[in-house]
Design a protein around this nucleic acid. Structure first.
Length: 277
DNA sequence: CATATGTCCTGAGAGC
DNA sequence: TGCTCTCAGGACATAT
């Protein structure tokens, strides 16, 4: 499931698209239900074909292509989506092909096994409004002061709150557990009861974990869905301390890692290293 | 307003 | 072997 490090890796992987002009836009045929394209497929082709890509950016867990028209194409990978310059895992789950002229990369591809992904074309104004309304500060650089401002007023458990993109952009289920392990904070601790020292620990663990995961090009889980190309996988799964390690010994204290369910999502933590209080 | 739950989707794996 | 069932969790809609 692509979170900030995986999406950042995708953005770097399509950096060669910058400077290119769109000469073709296609949706490969498939037996699968089509992904959501907003505002519509005809609007997308009408507004994009002939336009130049000025910049590739990341907004939380989304890839954004900025065009010379001012429009922005926002690609949301959600659970299984991949944005690639080449080599999708297969053809049957290829959802969108953008053909380019004049760029180092001749294509940008959107591949999505489960099809929960969304592709959305926005004007610059619409994009700015969405960022304002529904996106918190970026998790790669957020400070302790920002975290306290965003979270301290709620009673929601810290791990559940970290997933709320309106409060903080980029953290998903995997990295939320990893960050709290490094910060030594219990995942069920209500935000309102998190101390100053704990906010600092969370902020520094968050920046450290996410930067390391970016450096290793994200995490490829047992299902193998996330990859950098057809073959290349991420490398950060080798550094996971708690995620999907239920009953295995904690690397710090040897106590078995525990799995609980919060807001219908798995949470993993060490009951000794992350004791309440 | 805050918080909780339901929904979408495909493929893998378990169990019989 | 082949069926049915469960599970994974992004973002958002809807309910309380």
């Amino acid at each position: 499931m692509p979170e900030l490090p995986e999406v950042e890796t995708m953005c770097r992987g399509i950096a060669g698209a910058v400077g290119g002009r769109i000469v073709g836009l296609t949706r490969p045929r498939s037996r699968l239900r089509p992904i959501e394209i907003l505002p519509s497929w005809p609007a997308l082709t009408r507004r994009l074909v002939g336009r130049g890509i000025e910049r590739v950016g990341r907004l939380g867990k989304r890839v954004v292509l900025h065009f010379d028209s001012g429009d922005a194409l926002v690609i949301e990978p959600r659970m299984t989506g991949l944005v690639l310059a080449c080599d999708p895992p297969n053809r049957s789950h290829l959802r969108l092909v953008i053909d380019l002229a004049g760029a180092r990369s001749p294509q940008v591809l959107f591949w999505d096994q489960r099809g929960l992904g969304v592709v959305r074309l926005l004007t610059a104004e619409q994009l700015a409004a969405r960022v304002d309304r529904s996106l918190g500060p970026d998790a790669l650089t957020a400070t302790a002061v920002q975290l306290r401002r965003q979270f301290a007023s709620t009673r929601v458990p810290i791990k559940v709150a970290l997933l709320d993109q309106r409060r903080l952009a980029g953290v998903g289920n995997l990295y939320a557990s990893e960050i709290l392990f490094h910060a030594r904070v219990h995942p069920a601790l209500p935000c309102g009861e998190v101390s100053e020292q704990q906010w600092s620990a969370i902020a520094s663990a968050m920046r450290r974990v996410l930067a390391a995961a970016v450096k290793h090009e994200g995490s490829t889980l047992a299902d193998g869905t996330y990859r950098v190309g057809r073959e290349a996988t991420g490398g950060y799964q080798r550094f996971h301390r708690v995620y999907q390690r239920k009953d295995e010994p904690c690397f710090r204290c040897q106590m078995p890692i525990v799995r609980i369910v919060q807001a219908q999502r798995s949470t993993f933590f060490c009951p000794a290293c992350q004791a309440i209080g």
